[in-house]
Structures are given as C-alpha cells and as structure tokens.
Write a protein that binds this DNA or RNA. Structure first.
Length: 354
DNA sequence: AACTGAGCCAACCGCCGAGAC
DNA sequence: AGTCTCGGCGGTTGGCTCAGT
C-alpha cells in the first residue's frame, strides 16, 4: 500500500554539494526537465535524497536565480510584504524575481529583522515598540505599565525569547532590548527604570516566539487553531481575541467573495464603528474546497484553496473600483493593507515609515 | 599568529495537504 | 477508507568566513 520510499535515508550523502554533483543535476534537468525528483538521484547518478536534489535545484542551481546581494528596493519590498502577510516566504519570494524563499528568509533573519529592531520597530507588528507595548497593555487589561513593574513572575521556560539565545539569557525582554543598543531617538526607551522590570511574559507574548514564528508564520498554525478552537483565533490563543501582531484580520483572507453573508457585512459595520473585531468567524479548510462557518452558517467553496483566487476575490470585496485583474495577489494585499489603515485609524494606529 | 565570537547562508528537519495506491 | 509518499513550506542548525582582540 502506498508508494515506495523515495530513498534510503541512511545511505544517502548529506551536507554540502560538490561542483561535480551540481553539474550532474544541471545536466539531468537540462536533458529531462523537472519531473519526479525521487527519480533524479538514480538517473543523474547521485547518491542523494530526491528531496535534497530538489532543494539544491530550487535554491541554488536554477538558472533564473540571482546570486548577488539584495537591493534597497528589494529590501523595502520584503519589509512591506512581511508587514502585510508575515513570514510567508514563498509568497514573498514570488514577488521578487530571482529570489528563493530561502534567500528571503535568510535575509530577513540575518539583516532585516535586526535592522528593524535597531530602528525601534517590532519586526512582527511593524510598529514602534512603545506603541506595541501600549497596545498590549490596553488589550490584556494591563492599564498601565507600572502595574507590571511590580510583577515578579518567573518567565516561562517554554518561551524561546525575542533575541537569539534569549532562552538562555533569561533577562527581562526590555533589558535585552535596551542593552542591544536601542536607539536614542525613541523617547520612551530612555526611561529604563520605567521598563526594566517588566517581565517577558507580561509584556507581549508574541515577542517570545517571534524568532521562530512571526504572526503569520503562525498563519498555518492559526488555521490549525481555527479548526480546533471555534471561539477565537489569534497569535496566542490563550491571550486575547485580538491579534496584536498583525494589522490584518486574517479571517478576511480565508474567505472569498461568495462566503460573505449579510451577517458578515453587519459585523463589518459594527467593526467600522469602533467595535472591537470579534472572532465570530469559524473557519475550516477541508481537504477539498474551503468550508467556513460564520456565526453558525456554513459556507463551502467550490474549489481547492487558492491564494490567487480566494484571496483575490475576497480582497476585492472591499476594493470595489480598484482593478483586480491586473494585480498580483501580494499587490492586492498591500492595497488592502492601506485601505484597512485608512478605514480603521483608531485600531491600526499610525503608519510607520521606514 | 592564534583564538573567539558574530554573521551568514546552504542544507536539513519536521510538518502538512494532496494524491497515489 | 486507510496508509503512505511526494512536494512544498517555514523553522532551525551546522559549518564556514571574517573581524576583533
């Protein structure tokens, strides 16, 4: 039953590729094209796993790849896209010709994330840190930071920490940030005593998983949550129904136009009147077609889940008048981001210019 | 010159959905 | 219907390079 295994994992070579191996893959692909990667090692005379061959090709050997450093324009594009869709590296990479998801991911993790932190911007929410703390304080019921100054709760050992190795260095987050040359042009941060005692967990949960999963990297896990938790979804399910880590309401991106019920529109109206967005929408994404349960009403999509169509259709729900046909999915997302910011200034706060 | 730590990036790991059997 | 692999994805790690001491 089932397919045979693609390779004997114990007897295949691992590690860095040699020029000779690269040449074999290139020769094979140029002769046979890309097909079943499990057959490639055998046919190309390589003692590698097919999966490894595929990765080598897609991340390094593909002729359309750029191998030079990222340009300023590409940087800005990545930041904007990450702001809009989070760490969906494959989607971001599709918007950057010649770049792979691995390239983009590495560049983000090694350069851009640090750059944003140095600028005083939370790389998850893309908001200035003081604003993030302020948001979280109001969301979680922490009416002022002084309250948490007295907190002596021990940090949870399960959190990975905002900075690398923070799980080893268990200093409060604020101290870490401060000690990591926080810029002087962020006034709030000058008041170290006002901040230094704040416990990691007390501040903002998503910080502690940011290194491994930003908000939308948890988008996949959000979907999982949606399946298991009909009441709400957020980056941190146990915290609040409002996700502080993204300006987007992902509900909307999981719905396409045919799903939009009158109840949903009513909900939107309430939202636009300043009522906090409640996660009344329960989503399930079944193996064939999308099913979504909104306020108890189940709707079903006709086709497989598809960003380009489902998202696009949904986005256009609010983008009436804007051309949808010629725009890419991500462009549309960015437009949508701007629209949301314009529509909900009190919820989404000021746009931050990099 | 030798050592050390940080930065970088290619490659691997593990999960998931789709589809083959 | 159930089991299994493939292919795709995001997260993590190993090891190389280089700057600083």
């Amino acid at each position: 039953m089932g397919r045979p295994p693609c390779c004997d994992k114990l007897n295949v070579k691992r590690g860095l590729w040699t020029a000779e191996e690269d040449a074999k893959i290139v020769a094979y692909v140029s002769n046979h094209g890309i097909g079943n990667w499990t057959l490639v090692p055998k046919k190309a005379g390589l003692n590698r796993c097919g999966k490894s061959c595929r990765l080598r090709w897609t991340n390094y050997l593909r002729p359309d790849l750029k191998h030079d450093s990222f340009t300023t324009q590409e940087e800005e594009h990545i930041i904007n896209l990450h702001k809009a869709i989070g760490s969906r590296w494959s989607l971001i990479a599709k918007e950057l010709p010649g770049r792979t998801d691995n390239d983009v991911k590495n560049y983000w993790n090694t350069k851009l994330r640090k750059k944003l932190v140095k600028m005083g911007i939370d790389p998850v929410t893309h908001k200035p840190f003081p604003q993030v703390f302020s948001d979280y304080g109001s969301i979680s019921g922490i009416s002022n930071t002084r309250k948490s100054l007295n907190s002596k709760t021990e940090p949870s050992p399960t959190h990975t920490g905002f900075f690398p190795n923070a799980n080893v260095n268990r200093k409060p987050l604020i101290l870490q940030i401060h000690e990591n040359s926080f810029p002087d042009n962020v006034p709030t941060w000058k008041h170290q005593t006002h901040l230094q005692v704040i416990n990691q967990e007390t501040i903002l949960p998503h910080f502690f998983t940011e290194a491994t999963s930003s908000c939308s990297s948890s988008s996949s896990s959000n979907v999982t949550q949606l399946r298991s938790s009909p009441q709400s979804y957020s980056c941190q399910p146990s915290q609040t129904q409002i996700t502080p880590c993204s300006p987007f309401n992902w509900n909307e991106f999981l719905l396409s136009e045919p799903f939009i019920s009158s109840e949903f529109h009513q909900q939107e109206e309430r939202d636009s009147q300043g009522v906090l967005i409640q996660n009344e929408i329960q989503m399930t994404n079944k193996s064939k077609g999308n099913e979504c349960n909104m306020n108890g009403v189940t709707h079903k999509d006709s086709g497989a889940f598809n960003y380009g169509t489902s998202f696009g259709g949904l986005i256009n729900k609010k983008s009436e008048g804007s051309s949808s046909s010629g725009k890419s999915f991500v462009d549309t997302l960015l437009d949508r981001d701007s629209e949301i910011r314009a529509a909900f200034p009190e919820l989404l706060d000021d746009i931050f210019y990099y």
